[in-house]
Write a protein that binds this DNA or RNA. Structure first.
Lengths: 357, 357
DNA sequence: CCAGGTTGCTAAACCGACTTAGCACCGTCA
DNA sequence: TGACGGTGCTAAGTCGGTTTAGCAACCTGG
């Protein structure tokens, strides 16, 4: 491996000054502490020439701040566009000169505690607690020892901690409105229904999407034509639900409002196997914008989870906490829930229906 | 945020010993340096009671080693199962008590250099250079200042650096053999062909898969029935290629060997639109094992990119380099290319064909 | 009774930067 | 001539640990 790193002491010696002077110059306090312009220039030249870079570990020890954030998630990879969330976080962090520690808990609280501790040991300046699918969950014990932000995680009641979430309810409302505006009156829900099922602990997203959908339908004076509840949201459930709707002899054209793209994928299969066409016979709207949404024929119209933006926003919020001393923040900024819009990706799966009625 | 951290000095004072003694006890060198059992017990009790945890930054400064690795990739999220690679790396690192810095370059060499430097500034013990799709690429300048391993990246000629790669050629061979053993003789390649196209710089994977396929076919005395080359491997190209094959009036059953799952996805669409059935009329084999492979009906038989295993192996190799002083390694361990098998995910897209002739 | 060995622990240097009090020098003014 | 203030720089302490040399006190054997 290469030669040893150049230290500040090396620079100082080569420039013929004390290391205090070198430090002052390199940290930009030369003017303030009255180091002559000549000496400053010399120190800078020498530093440049030797390729000096400050040792971040040493600075971290001295200043107590490491320009490092921790990103603790339940699962990095398992789901959907999770990687994009990390990507957004990394980008935003880099723009501010921060690095990211990434850790994964597999959903186990004990692992989470250990990870948070390992990060605190390394003196991270703040921690992002992320979940790859929106939900609620108690916080690890040590999290109050450092600035923290929740990402895709609903804060427990009373917790004074900012959180960043997709605006699922609004997306639900907009999805329903999209179909209503296209003239649809027969709208089947696939993935959740107005029934008594309560999986709010399992999937906050389901709950909120449903709530948005139902309120939009209600305003239009309409009830869902049917609602198939299933918490796992796998393609085969979309297929089954659609089969049942078709078997009942539903009059086309009608519309399917799927709770995610996997369900919509299954619905596509069932529609095609029945010899029907999307969007002529059946309109489909969905949520998530998984990559498969763009591969389907016709493309699937869906409301995208803004993962990248969520990651960015979480880092930006966290850095605000890190950089502003505890007291100097606007009141209430602590417990704020930040909801990011889910943008519509309009592809070809929704057709207008001649107005009836 | 919470109270100040407990330092070793706090523990020492509370236990009534010098901080040297406390340090020796906490690092397990108490026996060796003849600290009495009584004092050792006292120190440990006090440490436990106060909740002492060593400050990793300080230890890093003193020992010059931080139990931290850097993971530099071109793109965390954009492709396929990339997240799994990181997941594997994180897991393996945690098992050894290491944390991972993750950074992304967007493929820009300047960003890469900056990232590597930022990591070196933070005294990482080693760096993994990863690419989300297999390819070859010059190394950043500073990488020789630290132990490093390439992940999914072909080492430049002459570079003495270990690398971890999927065994694409073997997978290609096995894919072809799978079809041959099922009795197929009419095998169409979709994604690359035996032609003069050379995108080895673009996609090493394509090149190696093709090479494996061709050598297996050659041994069986068979030439590909056709070969559609296209470097972007999008679903629509799979669709077009399959359409063309069908339009030519190819006699079913025949087999499609797609270079990745996206192409296979497009092929499925074309086959179904033509009113044919997989696998009765058309057998399909592919590579990658993207999540969509399991959603298709029938499930797509494909050779999985072992992303998780790749990530794990890269970390394990790197830790070997980190823990063994430069000289004490078996000769040749430096430049080794480690190829990991691509496991077959056998689903329902291949059917046996009655043997003809 | 003392040289020499053990036992049990600590002082002090060190890693590489940042930070503050203060020193030496010069010029000015009373 | 000597008090005073400004200029330009440095010594030394600090962050929180690790590491090594070495000090006291006790024990042993001749």
């Amino acid at each position: 491996m290469g030669t040893k790193r150049v230290t500040l002491a090396d620079v100082a010696k080569a420039a013929g000054v004390s290391s205090s002077t070198a430090s002052l110059v390199m940290t930009g306090r030369g003017q303030e502490l009255r180091i002559s312009e000549a000496v400053q220039a010399r120190v800078r030249d020498v530093a440049q020439e030797l390729g000096y870079r400050p040792n971040a570990v040493s600075v971290g020890l001295r200043k107590g701040t490491t320009r490092t954030l921790g990103f603790v998630s339940d699962s990095v990879a398992s789901s959907r566009l999770a990687g994009d969330m990390i990507k957004g976080a990394i980008e935003a962090a880099r723009e501010h000169g921060f690095m990211l520690f990434i850790g994964e808990t597999g959903g186990k609280p004990a692992e989470e505690t250990k990870l948070v501790e390992a990060m605190l040991d390394r003196q991270v300046d703040g921690i992002i607690l992320a979940s790859m699918f929106t939900r609620s969950r108690p916080l690890p014990a040590d999290i109050d020892r450092t600035p923290a932000v929740l990402l895709n995680l609903v804060p427990p009641p009373g917790a004074k901690i900012p959180s960043v979430l997709p605006d699922e309810e609004r997306a639900g409302r907009e999805a329903a409105e999209l179909l209503l505006e296209a003239g649809h009156r027969e709208i089947h829900l696939i993935g959740a229904g107005p029934g008594p099922d309560d999986w709010s602990s399992v999937s906050v997203a389901a709950h909120q999407r449903l709530s948005g959908i139902l309120s939009a339908l209600e305003e239009a004076g309409i009830e869902p034509a049917s609602g198939f509840a299933d918490p796992s949201w796998l393609p085969e459930h979309g297929w089954e639900a659609t089969q049942r709707i078709l078997a009942r002899g539903a009059a086309t054209p009608f519309a399917l409002l799927c709770f995610n793209d996997r369900l919509a994928f299954g619905a596509y299969q069932a529609v095609q196997e029945a010899g029907l066409t999307i969007p002529d016979n059946v309109s489909v709207v969905s949520f998530d914008d998984a990559s498969v949404a763009g591969w389907l024929r016709p493309g699937l119209t869906t409301f995208a989870l803004p993962h990248r933006a969520l990651g960015r926003r979480a880092v930006e919020l966290l850095l605000e906490l890190v950089e502003n001393p505890e007291g100097s923040r606007p009141a209430g900024a602590n417990g704020l829930v930040h909801r990011l819009p889910m943008p519509l990706r309009s592809r070809g799966s929704v057709a207008a229906r001649t107005q009836t009625g």
